[in-house]
Every structure is written in C-alpha cells, then in structure tokens.
Nucleic acid binder design. Structure first.
Length: 430
RNA sequence: GGAGACUUGUCCGAGUGGUUGAAGGAGCACGCCUGGAAAGUGUGUAUACGGGAAACUGUAUCAAGGGUUCGAAUCCCUUAGUCUCCGCCA
C-alpha cells in the first residue's frame, strides 16, 4: 500500500510510474488526495469538540466534589449536546477513512526507475545468462518420463488420492526432495539467514498483510471451518512475524529462511505447461525474506540476486536472470528479478525463483517499522519509519528437479551435481 | 472439549469510575561524579493521526471490538490469547 504523503508530494511522478504498471486511472489519485483532505478536516473538527467535552467533564468532576450539583447538571446538558453534534461527524469520518483505505489498496506499488517498459513477458530484460547447456543423448526424454523410468514420482497416484497437481514423490525421488531442501536451507543459514518452520495455515489478517487478500483469495486454498488459508508461499507467515511491530534499528537487517510446502489453486492453467512438475497445486520451496533499512534495500536486493545465482551455479544448471518489465511485475513489487533454468528435454526455460524488493509497500500494510538508533550525544532524532521488505525463492523445488533430471540424464542414470551428492548420499540416480 | 483465574508502557509491577499516558522499580540513552570503571546522582525514554514556521499543542490508545456514564485502565457484553485443574490425544 502506498503512503498518502508520497502520493501528495510526488503526484506527477506517481502517475508516471503507475503507468509503467499499466495503471492509468488518474482520477483515483485526485480522489485519494481529496479524501485525505476531508479526513484531516473532519479529524480536526472532532478533536476540537472532543477537547471541549473533556474539559467540561473535568469541571463536572470538580463541581461534584465541591457539592455544586446544579451547576454540574447544567454542564452535563452542555456536554450532551456537544456529543450529539459529534456523532454524525464521527460516522462521516470513519466512512471517509474506509473509502480512502479502499482506494489506496487498489494502487499497485510504484516500479523502480530501472524497471523496463513493457507489458508482456517477452519484454522482460535478460540481465545475464550463466551455466552451460550440455548436449543431450539422442533418445533424451522429458522429466515426467524419467520420473516413471526411475520410479521417482507417481503423478497418477496423486490424482487418485487428491487430484491432479498433487504428486507422490517416491524412493529416490523423495530422497532427492529431502536432499535439496536440506542443501538449500544449509546454504541460506550459512549466509546468515535464520531458519524458521512456520505454520502452513494463516489467518485472514496475515493473508491480507502480504497482499494475497483482498484480491487473490481465489488462488489460495481455504479452510472455512476455521477461516484459515493454506499458504501459497512461506513469504506469508515469515513476513507476518513482524506485523505491527517496531523493530530496533540495531536489529536490522532481519534475514529469515524457511522450507514449506506451498499451495496454489492456480485456476485457469492447463495444457502442456502443466505437464509433469511444471505447475503443481502443492510444491516445496525454500524462501528467503529480509527486512532492512530503506536506504539499503536495493543493495540488499543485488546481494540476494547473487545469493540465488550462486546457488544455481552450484547446481550446475544453465540459467538466466531477467529483470521484469512493468507489465509482468507483481502488484506489490517495485523491482523483480526472475531466475529461470533451462530444462533441456522440454527445451524450455522454467522459472525457479523470483527475487523482489517491495520497498515499503508491504510494511505499510503490515505496519512493520523500525526505530532509528539514538544519535550519540543527543536524544532520539529520527522518527519511526517503515522498513523495506524483500523476498525471494532459494529455490522452488519442482522445476529444479525437472531440470536436474532432464539435463543430467545419461545411459547409466542421472548424474547429480557435486554440491548435492553428499546430501543425496550417491552421485547418481539409476 | 468442560470449569476457573488472568491479559496495564521495553520488562516487572501499582492502580476498581474523576488532571492516570498511566505510581514505583528495572532496563536503555545522555550528562554529572571517577585516573578508568562500578556504585551514586540528574534528565530523558510509547504509538498513531491532526494544528503550528517553531517552541509547543489537541485527540485517540491500559489484549481487540462494542456498550453504560457528564467522565472508564477501572463497570457490562463479544472475540482472541495466557495460565491452572479435569477430559481427550500424536
């Protein structure tokens, strides 16, 4: 959620940048400012009246103590009429506050100045590519066939027990999952991220905090008896840890990591894109989240990109990094880098990570703030301000598995990258 | 799941209708003291939204929401959470 003051003070800039995200409803901007104006006016009016009421109430107390009951009763009458005056103004104020909030929540985050123009994924900017595409054997097969050949994943069983998009991993397939999770978490914690194991169901407030609600409830599984949502990503519980908190500046940056299954309804996707592991309703992911000082967030974003890039390099997979164009970015993001790996048998690039800086868009919703450290030799100077939040996947498992299987297939089995061998316990799957 | 007790500031803790944003203590920050430190001592130490050039100032907030009252941290209702006992259970 954007801050009203930003909209007020940099109106032209805001309009220009919203256009990059294909948001062109300028009237909303003006409407927001108008609403904020009347909000202030009404607030002032109410404060004034309330102040009078409070003063009179004190007087009444003193009059009663002095035994001047008649005077007190007169005062009571005065206060009563002030109060009846106040009531409709109060109602008006809360109506306006609600409307203001509803308008603000519709605005997407402002894209960073480095975000390329564009509307479709084709207009994303390729930042760099890495890793080597190795030539495959002649009879190379896609991962869903490899999964069957080596008895790693059973998709049909998932259909039977739950539905499509809920596979069973089995034997070495299950172990590979476990190895990847363990490896990713170790990699993150040794880089200074604190490991969590969060709840997989969250309440409404949390889903709202990270921006899944109010718009995207259709994408989440919902447990109606308790009003809980199954998390679509660990970002939701992790970021919400600090909802409504004021953090000491000395505690920043806060770095969190967690492995969780992720649940996505993904209504409306079909065809060959969803074949095998390409798109699932339940999948495993290791996530990283940071909360940082606003001035440092873009430096941290680059660090996170390098962090994920090195992880991909250690898996010896061909990858590329994209800077998303305005039209392809998520609602809440100010700058996003996507990571894709090349899955050789499908000859497709698959997204395996998305690293974003949300600036204060989420923290404003969630009221995650920090208190500046006291300046030496003086009192606290700076005001409490919003932190910047960032997150990224490191990494989403299914497509990594797809690429590992396809790219590393050989006549004698699937060769695993060195980094993974000690976790998996063997050098190959056969 | 049943019964009861409880929920106050960074923490501990007082407060059961009238200058209580909230005693007291601890912590923390800054200063004094000291050769330096400890001890001692002084001052300061919540958040949000307003007004004001500023100094400063208004309003709201004692789990959350609502109600009673001229006035609520204090009384009532609802919800959430914590603890104790019982039941159940991986």
């Amino acid at each position: 959620m954007l801050q009203v003051n930003v909209i007020r003070n940099k109106k032209e800039d805001v309009i220009e940048r919203l256009a990059l995200k294909n948001y062109t409803d300028i009237n909303v901007i003006d409407h927001i400012i108008e609403l904020d104006d009347s909000r202030k006016k009404l607030q002032f009016e109410i404060d004034e009246t309330q102040s009078k009421i409070n003063a009179s109430s004190k007087e009444i107390g003193q009059l009663m103590a002095a035994g001047k009951k008649e005077l007190a009763d007169t005062k009571k009458g005065e206060v009563g009429s002030l109060k009846s005056l106040l009531q409709p103004v109060n109602e008006k104020l809360s109506a306006i506050e609600n409307e203001l909030h509803d308008e603000l929540i519709k605005l997407p985050n402002l894209p960073h100045t480095s975000v390329p123009k564009g509307k479709t994924p084709e207009e994303n900017e390729i930042v760099r590519e890495g890793g080597k595409k190795k030539p495959l054997q002649k009879d190379a097969i896609p991962h869903w066939d490899l999964a069957k050949k080596y008895d790693l994943i059973n998709f049909e069983l998932g259909n039977k027990v739950t539905g499509s998009g809920f596979p069973f991993y089995k034997n070495k397939g299950a172990k590979l999952q476990r190895a990847l999770i363990q490896y990713f978490l170790d990699y993150n914690t040794s880089a200074g991220y604190t490991e969590y194991q969060p709840p997989l169901l969250v309440n409404e407030e949390s889903a709202y905090g990270t921006g899944q609600l109010p718009d995207k409830e259709g994408q989440m599984y919902f447990s109606g008896a308790d009003n809980f949502y199954l998390i679509p990503t660990a970002e939701v519980p992790l970021t919400n840890i600090y909802r409504n908190d004021i953090i000491k500046e000395t505690e920043l940056p806060i770095r969190l990591t967690a492995y969780t299954p992720c649940f996505r309804r993904e209504a409306g996707s079909y065809g060959k894109d969803v074949r095998g592991l390409n798109r699932l309703h339940q999948f495993d992911k290791v996530e990283i989240v940071q909360m940082v000082h606003p001035e440092k967030s873009y430096g941290v974003l680059e660090e996170m990109v390098i962090h994920v890039e090195r992880l991909l390099q250690s898996l010896e997979l061909p990858y590329r990094i994209l800077r998303l164009c305005g039209g392809d970015m998520s609602f809440a993001s100010a700058l996003t880098y996507d990571f894709e790996v090349f899955s050789a048998a499908q000859e497709k690039w698959l997204e395996v990570s998305s690293v974003s800086n949300f600036e204060s868009f989420q923290s404003n919703r969630m009221k995650i703030r920090f208190k500046p450290a006291q300046a030496p030799g003086g009192n606290a100077d700076g005001k409490t301000q919003l932190v910047h939040t960032l997150n990224g996947s490191s990494l989403a498992l299914p497509r990594i598995v797809a690429a590992l299987l396809e790219n590393n297939q050989n006549t004698d089995g699937i060769h695993l990258p060195k980094a993974l061998q000690s976790y998996f316990g063997k050098a190959k799957i056969y």
